[in-house]
Write a protein that binds this DNA or RNA. Structure first.
Lengths: 230, 230
DNA sequence: GGTTTGCGTTAGCCATGGGTAACACGAGTG
DNA sequence: CACTCGTGTTACCCATGGCTAACGCAAACC
């Protein structure tokens, strides 16, 4: 019951190139995990100007993807439909990453960029079929959960490796996939989802961890891209 | 040696959305199989106005994808680079169709539309990997050959079922994939690449063929979408 | 030979999705 | 209190890629 994301994709009434809208909605959804989304933060995240965000905001409101705020300068809040579209995009993105990694053996640090372009143009049917082909995977190769349909979970973000202290023993759960170079580096160290590690030292600029017998030294900026669980 | 199509894809210097260019170049290439390409014919083929073709022409010439003609009103001729880009697009399109049909079991009459959107956004590397995954297929599910790299063959088009006479015995080689409804109809009849058929009757409006024990009556417009060989 | 038809081109309009420059406002800071 | 800094908005400009209207021209038709 309810809308499929196929319906949601018809949001732009007739014109197809709503790529930009999809990117805005997805970004708002993903930034939303860390709290209210300010327009300026969104602009920095998407590498566009504040003006572009301001204009996009009006359009997204007109299309019912964004909640209309009465006062200006309020944080951006997705509407129910906006959230559904965002989740559909995230699902596609992660399914595609999984497909590229598992079926085509594309290196981990390149799956994000490939998925980013294709996620806007595949049909819902193809997404379904890819999921079936892969055996309905639960996590993408970076360790992020793959939402099913309109599943709107809102689990708060896990802590990162940058927040730990010497002696902590944890599992790597996921990697931030947006910085290709960082992903390549982390993958080369074996800091992949599922890896068990011990924090040896942590100072202002670096974190030293041990994985099995290997000692790894990471910059904090890289450590912050590794989400961990116990 | 020579350019990979990855280089060719960088044709628009820095701006990425050269989707339209790719469509024009591919269309010119495909229409070119039937003789010189007039701008008006291209406009009808792409469902755009003659004006749009005229403007695209200037841009494509400026980008070196189209040969510059001295007199106006000359047919459109792809440059070497234009042809390479076109072949790369055709290759991707057919690889994607094959992937969708074989790996994802997408019905034959839908693979074209899916491929049409994705062919503009996949990387050369992914195209290579898909080819490898499929065992380097030679033909797409409609029976069209899949060019390899910059292979610029110029085989003249095969005759179609609409050009035959009673008594002719032929093999179906390929189906025109641009009319989804026609493909669905032909597939339902079993008029698929490889099928052996006998022409029973052919008049001005219909062609009657036999495939095994089944008699099939086709409109000429549909028969013209079936390319045949002996 | 005149007329119609089709073709390619120009001029000008539109929507999208970017951008700068400039402004008003609010929160801190001196 | 004044000042700065970050924020959101407005008014414009730009390129892309469509469109229609209108024109010059050539070929075909009567």
């Amino acid at each position: 019951m309810g809308n499929t994301s196929a319906e949601l994709l018809a949001v732009g009434s007739d014109r197809s190139p709503l790529r930009a809208r999809e990117d805005y909605v997805k970004a708002i959804y993903q930034l939303g995990a860390d709290g209210p989304v300010r327009a300026a933060a969104l602009a920095r995240y998407l590498h566009v100007s504040r003006v572009s965000v301001s204009k996009a905001k009006r359009q997204l409101e007109a299309e019912g993807l964004l909640e209309r705020e009465r006062e200006p300068s309020q944080p951006l809040r997705l509407s129910r439909r906006g959230r559904k579209l965002a989740v559909a995009m995230v699902r596609r993105h992660r399914l595609l990453e999984t497909f590229f990694h598992r079926a085509l053996r594309v290196p981990l640090d390149r799956v994000h960029a490939e998925a980013e372009r294709i996620e806007h143009v595949i049909s819902d049917d193809v997404a379904m079929r890819i999921a079936a082909l892969l055996g309905r995977p639960q996590r993408d190769p970076h360790g992020h959960p793959i939402p099913y349909r309109d599943d709107l979970r809102a689990d708060k973000p896990l802590p990162t490796l940058a927040e730990l202290h010497a002696g902590d023993r944890v599992n790597v759960v996921s990697l931030d996939d947006r910085d290709d170079a960082a992903v390549a580096l982390l993958a080369k160290c074996g800091l992949l989802p599922g890896a068990r590690i011990v924090v040896e030292r942590a100072d202002a600029s670096r974190v030293v961890v041990r994985r099995g017998k290997r000692m790894l030294t990471l910059r904090r900026s890289h450590a912050a891209m590794v989400r961990i669980g116990t």
